[in-house]
Design a protein around this nucleic acid. Sequence first.
DNA 1: GCCGGAACAT
DNA 2: ATGTTCCGGC
Length: 637
Amino acid sequence: MKTPGDTGFAFPDWAYKPESSPGSRQIQLWHFILELLRKEEYHDVIAWQGDYGEFVIKDPDEVARLWGARKCKPQMNYDKLSRALRYYYNKRILHKTKGKRFTYKFNFNKLVLVNYPFIDMGPAGSAHRNGVPQSAPPVPTGVGTHFRFPPSTPSEGLSPSEELRSPGVFGAVARRVARGSVSDCSDGTSNSELEEAVGGGGGVEERGGGERVFRSLLHPRLSHDSLFRVYGAPPNPGLARSGPHGPPPHRVHPEPLSPFPVSPLPGPGGLLGPTLSPALSMTPTSHLPYTPSPSLSPMLGSHFSFNPEDMKRYLQAHTQNVYNYHLSPRAFLHYPNIVIPQPQRPSDTKGTLGAPHTHHGPSSLQPGHSLHSHLPHHQASEEPHLSPFKFKLQPPPLGRKQREGPAQSTGSSTSSTSGPSSSLAGEHGSASNQGSKFSGSFAHSGGPPEIKVEPESDIESEEEVEVTDISEDEEDEGDVFAPPHHLNGSAVHPPPLQAADDGIVADEELEEDVFKTPAVPTNTGLPSLLGLKTEPREVCLGQGPRPLASPGGTNCIPLKLRFKRRWSEDQRMEAGAEEAEDKKVRAAEERDDEEMEEESEAKRAERVLVLPPAPAQRRVSSELQRATAQLSLENGC
DNA sequence: GCCGGAACAT
DNA sequence: ATGTTCCGGC
């Protein structure tokens, strides 16, 4: 569900829950998996493999055992664990790599953004090694919204209260190597790292409403790869499409052992939490506890916080490198303050690398490099400004319908274990996930069964391809980020602007297109943004999401008003539409999603864009852009 | 092996 | 919400 209050998109509630974040005491399976993946010690048990985000469970029984140990479920076995993994399909956290036994793939699009924005997954290390994914752990660099990586043992570390208090925890860079990931129930604590809280300071700005609005800016399409690459080395070297000139990306590993480099956000006092992390903001008791996992890599310098500046830098770095977050361009519209990082098509800018700017970033990351591989250097401009961010994660999982069924009495668990037989997998072709069968309804809720829509395909498409799962993501994104899609008939159209798109195909090759795609509608829009960028860039975050506030310059007023109006409108629409849409659309979307890559593009575009008259839209965009710029100036930013 | 529904647990 | 446990099916 979305959080109430948000006007914009948001990740599902679960994403904001502390528990959802990797560090939380209540470790979630995917967190655990990541944990194992990042540790070399377990690389014989589970390891990254293949694509970004793809991992293979080499020893299912062991993984199950470890998981069981962590959860104090001695009876755990792969069968059960895999069931849990399967639940992630609907959540779009994971999906199965078809045809490969014990192989799953994270949909980092979502995950990363929310919990590990900087994660680097994939066999990063492999970069060096060419292809060999093996050891390379993902580098999570963490952070993001709420990122707390967990000490492996969560329990332990700080008392809750303490945690709360330590806001800035990121700071320290603690980087200890983590060691234990698995703890046993008995002690409760595992060894991992506790991180101390660094603490600090106070927050700076919390945003008043507590709204967490975090909208990111990057281009949607670049998802995983980019993401991963950003911080890490390109996972698949082979794949890496580094530019001819670009230096080959390499990942930086501060510590050899720990996969994860230091955490990026070190800033004490950062408001990370409060500001960005949805989780934090939502939960009163916030847990600021971010436990830095040892592995976090420090992204930007020693101190990074979510305060505007840091964020700016941070984003900048990212954006420059990649448009990591795959956000819909649309987001920008909503938050005028944000300056879009300029996405340019490589082709255009090629060569312009102009100012690579300093990455304030910690050297360790060197985003630039990594990105390069991916993106050509185009990002001339810099500074993304972002102010409020809001993410929306995947659509809520569909409910299942409850159907009557005989209850079963206790059965003995058959332990499965071992013995992997080799069957090829073919899996029945069920579409992956939800696809085929979903009947939707909500089991628990007890609500009446709802509509059962069953989209058929959903995801899947990419699996084999692997490189990206974008398809899914995209779809999600589409949904997710994009405001409600306007279904065809509905009139509401949120800001059409660039939105175009989100999703669609994507992929590697497309990367370039990434921006382009949206372009269709947005043509003007982007450019203008870019133009804006040129101008003074600082955004004033202080105000919060809404830029409107103080009247300031005279000449701008009109613009402002316009802007404001627009903004309001959008908000309204979003709000209204979103929810409704969520449901409605979802079905439709799902259907579309994956399958149609190409088709979808067009279609999607239509959906989104079509409604509004193109010209008008464009104009609006421009205006917005302009207005934004103005505001920025006015605000003194 | 993998999938996903159901009931149940937290 | 996120599993855990069972289970029937493919």
